[in-house]
Amino acid sequence: MIGNYNPENVKAAAKELAPAKENLLLQIWRNRKARIGLIIFGFFIILGALGHFYTPYPATYDNFRPWLAPSIKHWFGTDYDGHDVFSQFMYGTGVSLYVGAAVAFIAVTLGTVVGLISGYYGGLVDNFLMRFVDILLILPTFPLLVILSTYFKPTITSTIIVIGILSWPFMSRVIRSQILTVRQRPFVQAAILAGLPGYKIMFKEIFKFTLPLIIINAVYIFVGAIVAQAGLAFFGLGDLASVNWGTMLYYAQSEDAVIYFAWWWIVPPGVAIALLGVAANIFGNGITEVFGERAGEI
C-alpha cells in the first residue's frame, strides 16, 4: 500500500454517511486536496486518451537520429533506436492508465462483492471468506507476480488479470468491517424483518455506505497496479512489445541510457508514476475530509 492511507479514518467518516444533501461531485471539487488530486489524474487521463489517437510522431517510428537531447522538435529527445520519446510517453500513458483502470475494475468488483457477502451473511460464509483473505494477504505479491510471469508468457491482458486477482483482499476486509457496523443499524434490521431478499438489502440499502471506501480503494489500487505493471515490465517480465511507462524504463535500462546520459528518456515515466502516487494520496486525504464533512452535516 502506498503512503499513509488509514482505513480507520475513512471508516469513521463513512459510518455516518447519510443520503446526499448536496451534490457529492460538487462537494469533492470544492475540497482543495481532492481537487488537486483530480486535476493531476485528469491531466494524465487526457494525455493518455489523446495519445491513443494522436502523437506528434507515430510511437513506433524509429528513423530519427538516436540519443538526441530534448528540443522543440523532440520535447523529450529521442531514444537509442531513434524513437521520439515524447510520442512514446504519450502513447504509453494511455496503456499504463488502461492497465491501472482495468485492474482497479477487477479488484474493486471482487473486493466489494466478497466484502459485502462476508459482512452481510456473517457466520460460516464470513469465516471461510476471511480466512481465505488472510492467506492471500500473507502471500508476498510481487514475487508471486514474478514467478507467474515466468510460467505464463505475459501479455498486457494476462498482467492485468494477475495483478487484479492479487489486489482485492485488503479492500474486501475494509468493506466487510464497514458492513458489519451498518448491518446493526435499525433500517437494515427493519428491511430484514420486512422480508426483503438479501441481495436487495445488500445492494440497495447497504451498498451506498461503502462508497467512500470504494472510491479511495479504487484510486490506490489504480496507482498500485500501474506501479506493479511498470515494475514487472522494467525487469523484462511484461509484454515487451507494448509501449508503456514500464517498458520505456526497461529499454532505457537495457540499452544503457545511463551511459549516454539520456536523462530525458529515464525521467518522464518515473516522474509520471510518482505524480500519480502523490495524486492518489492527496485525493484520498481530500475525500476523507469530504465524507467527514458530510457526516457532520446531518
Partner: peptide
C-alpha cells in the same frame, strides 16, 4: 510514491 528502481537508476 517514487518507484524504487527508477530512483536507483
Amino acid at each position: 510514491s517514487l518507484p524504487y528502481f527508477w530512483l536507483a537508476i
